[in-house]
Design a protein around this nucleic acid. Sequence first.
DNA 1: CGTTTTTGATTGAGCCGTCAATCAAGAAAA
DNA 2: TTTTCTTGATTGACGGCTCAATCAAAAACG
Lengths: 196, 196
Amino acid sequence: MPKIGAATVRRQAMVEAAIIEIGEAGSLDVTVSQIARRAGMSPALAHHYFGSKDQMFLAAMRHILKLYGDSVRRRMAEATTPLGRIHAIIEASFAPDQFDREVVAAWLTFYVRALQSEETRRLLQLYARRLHSNLVFSLRELVGAGSAQAIAQGLAAMIDGFYIRHALQDFAPGKDEVRAMVIDYLELCLARNARV
Amino acid sequence: MPKIGAATVRRQAMVEAAIIEIGEAGSLDVTVSQIARRAGMSPALAHHYFGSKDQMFLAAMRHILKLYGDSVRRRMAEATTPLGRIHAIIEASFAPDQFDREVVAAWLTFYVRALQSEETRRLLQLYARRLHSNLVFSLRELVGAGSAQAIAQGLAAMIDGFYIRHALQDFAPGKDEVRAMVIDYLELCLARNARV
DNA sequence: CGTTTTTGATTGAGCCGTCAATCAAGAAAA
DNA sequence: TTTTCTTGATTGACGGCTCAATCAAAAACG
């Protein structure tokens, strides 16, 4: 057998190249050739490993979601209080590597792709639900069940909103301000709904 | 001269067809033929009136922004208090015709297109700045200047966030809940920062 | 240890379909 | 008739994907 285990390395390289290429282009209109060339291989090899451009995109998206998920999990494990765990999620969302403009650009293009692709939507929903559950679980220890749901929705929306604005508006606030504002919103909500 | 004024009608029809087609597809990957066919004309005619696919998209985007802008202006004109004017902006954002799933889809695709197209980004920034100014202007009559900026950013982000989630997440809250949550956030901020 | 075989890795060339854009000719209004 | 409107046909470019062929490492064998 020849150089076994090349597959994993190749796939990894291809996925990373795809994310960079997509991020730079700000769209999914990147050719398989472009991606393959950046990963240092031929377009044919890309098809050999992924079967189709579509599958390649899905792999790239799974990778992005996994990175974010890992980051959240890591930070949550370190936290010791409910409030700390909520903060962990917020921190993860605005960590430098997540909030990098090109990563956000890639993220956004995948987000919008969910409008077309069933499979992409499925992946996205999965991530969204998990995030929501995490938030609600911790919030419930601080406020009532109904409030927890609402606050989680509000926080998630605000985070997404700042993401999108960060990606494409020059005068959008930086990540420190943004984090502060989200936390501020959280505290306003908690102050009102706190269990006595 | 033949059929005077055909140009305006044709352009209008084409723009509307483009928005519907884009909204349904959930992407800008729609062919000129598709759009033209829906508008009841030949692809060649589309090029005759717009010069290029790109120009057609820009026209469509201007149209979307104009509809929203008109809606905001109309509602603000009816309002008589600063708080009323802020509510007007929020209401406009979640009005049924704006919050229709396909319109939101078209909106989103244009939003993301700003990552690629300079001209699109320019248009978007223009709209965003105007919205921001409107918000800040009214907020300033209720709170201090610094708070006004921050609250405006927060409101705008939350609105965008609910938009995107509405478009592609099944379990996202409906427009009434969403509106209530945004207004609730506004009131929380005002309650804390109110000028005495 | 050398030879042969096996088998995944890799690619260049090219097919096939699509689509934006063009153009020249026909239709319709003035 | 003249001017604008409109279109079918065409073109040129491009990109996803396939395939036959080659390469090279590892394993099997003697």
